[in-house]
């Protein structure tokens, strides 16, 4: 589209004309902001993020409750609790902790994997019916057992939808 060659001045009725040649002669104003400081700052930012960045795996939280230490309101329940003893397993040759055993209600067969523990808890829940989720699950890890094994037991109970899961210290 051809550019307008006419213009008006405020308060003046006269129409002014600008010739095409004059227009071509007029250099177009070029705005070029200085990029160097911006690049400097951008690289500083990038360097900061690269150094401060911590590649951490996504973590979350498993909620629980702590027993109150007051003796005024002891928790009383008619339901027989499920007790999970978490016992460390040691390799005789290397004398290193290799895993653990989940001993549920002192049954003769101990469970070695959290998956099996979950299946057992799920099975108990099905057998007990509706009230099952209210059954207290008591996790009794031995003091020297690695935290991950105790956490697995807690997670298995939460996964099986038990509502009352507690940690109890060894006698």
């Amino acid at each position: 589209m051809a550019r307008d060659t006419k213009y008006h001045i405020e308060g003046d009725e006269t129409t002014h004309f600008v010739s095409q040649r004059k227009k071509r002669e007029r250099p177009k104003a070029k705005m070029q902001p200085p990029l160097t400081p911006m690049i400097d700052v951008t690289f500083q930012l990038l360097l900061f993020f690269l150094l401060a960045f911590n590649f951490r795996l996504a973590e979350g939280q498993i909620p629980g409750t702590l027993p109150t230490k007051s003796e005024d309101d002891p928790v009383v329940t008619d339901l027989l609790p499920i007790t999970i003893n978490v016992i460390p397993a040691m390799d005789a040759k290397t004398q290193r902790m290799t895993g653990c055993l989940y001993d549920v209600d002192k049954v003769s067969v101990s469970i070695k994997t959290p998956r099996k523990l979950y299946e057992l808890l799920e099975g108990r829940k099905l057998a007990l019916g509706e009230a099952a989720t209210k059954v207290p699950v008591i996790i009794k890890p031995r003091d020297d057992v690695a935290w991950r094994h105790a956490l697995e037991a807690f997670n298995a109970a939460v996964l099986a939808k038990y509502k009352n899961v507690v940690f109890v210290a060894e006698d």
Partner: peptide, 25 residues
């Protein structure tokens, strides 16, 4: 070992903090 976690739980129960959350991946 679990005993160190137990100390924290005991200390929290002593100062009457009832809620706890365990961090896990």
């Amino acid at each position: 070992a679990f005993e160190y976690v137990k100390h924290v739980m005991d200390a929290a129960a002593d100062v009457k903090i009832a809620k706890v959350k365990f961090s896990a991946l």
